[in-house]
């Protein structure tokens, strides 16, 4: 089972809350897919305005945990989430919670860039439109521009906003998807291996972007690249076979992990 004892959890919670406010918190989170358990009692805090990296070998449950943070698991038939996940102290699985609002506040970027088959402008404007964030065209223009700017894409696409988003390069598409997520002013952005489909140069750009975004947003990123976790995150959580093995400050995790499995994984003995 989990290596952390309850006392240790309390202690950890305490220590992290001293450093930064807790934005999201998972308590005893379990996930079943059609009766098969994929996640076993995960306890994890996501501190505000930091980047939390979820690492671990494939199939370890890190993406599953990520997708339960904004209830994207709801869209998968036969998926059941147990335990408690809170956003600013409110249980996101409370029936009174509006999933539409939740997903607007907790945005998500996917493994493969998935721009809609629409123009660049329409891709970014989609979210603000459906949520009614902009009151008129000029406000919408502003939101689109500022989102693209924040996603470091504006200078590259400002002359071709009406061209289809699917015509961009892979890295640009992923930044477009980030801009699309930013446009609804989320508080948290979940990223599910956002660079796995990108080449090294595009990856570097997106990583740089993630670092910048940290100032305004809380970010949770799933990655299978140790270097990436080390480069962009402040905190790291290690998953294995559906259990949270260890979590803590990234520096410590990569230099002096508590758990043997973490050490093995980081040094490349399995994964």
């Amino acid at each position: 089972m989990n290596m952390l004892t309850d006392a240790a959890v309390e202690q950890k919670l305490h220590s992290t809350s001293n450093e930064a406010a807790i934005k999201m918190r998972g308590k005893d989170v379990t996930v079943h897919y059609n009766g098969k358990q994929a996640l076993f009692g995960v306890n994890l805090d996501v501190p505000e305005q930091q980047v939390t990296a979820l690492i671990g070998p494939s199939g370890c449950g890190k993406s599953t945990f990520l997708r339960s943070l904004n209830r994207m698991n709801d869209t998968i038939e036969g998926c059941r989430v147990g335990g408690e996940i809170t956003l600013d102290g409110d249980d996101v699985y409370d029936p009174r919670i509006d999933v539409v609002e939740l997903r607007a506040r907790v945005g998500m970027v996917f493994q493969k860039p998935n721009p809609f088959p629409k123009s660049i402008y329409e891709n970014v404007a989609y979210g603000p439109r459906i949520h009614g964030i902009a009151r008129n065209k000029s406000e919408l223009d502003q939101i689109v521009e500022s989102s693209l700017e924040k996603a470091a894409l504006w200078s590259e696409v400002k002359d071709r906003l009406n061209e289809p988003g699917t015509g961009l390069s892979g890295g640009q598409q992923q930044r477009l998807c980030i801009a699309r997520a930013i446009a609804v002013s989320p508080e948290v952005i979940l990223m599910d291996e956002p660079c796995s489909a990108l080449d090294p140069i595009a990856t570097a750009k997106v990583e740089e972007l993630i670092d910048e975004l940290r100032e305004n947003y809380t970010i949770v990123i799933v990655t299978h690249s140790m270097q990436q976790a080390a480069r962009v995150s402040q905190r790291t959580a290690m998953f294995h076979l559906g259990y949270l093995v260890e979590e803590g400050a990234t520096d410590k995790m990569f230099t002096n992990p508590d758990d043997k499995r973490t050490q093995d994984y980081i040094t490349g003995r399995f994964g």
Binding site: E101, A104, R105, P128, H131, I133, A134, R135, E139, Q142, I143, S146, V184, S185, N216, Y217
Partner: peptide, 12 residues
């Protein structure tokens, strides 16, 4: 409200 949106705060 739009100003809020751009600065990243929407009163949901």
């Amino acid at each position: 409200m739009a100003a809020q949106a751009i600065t990243g705060h929407v009163d949901w």
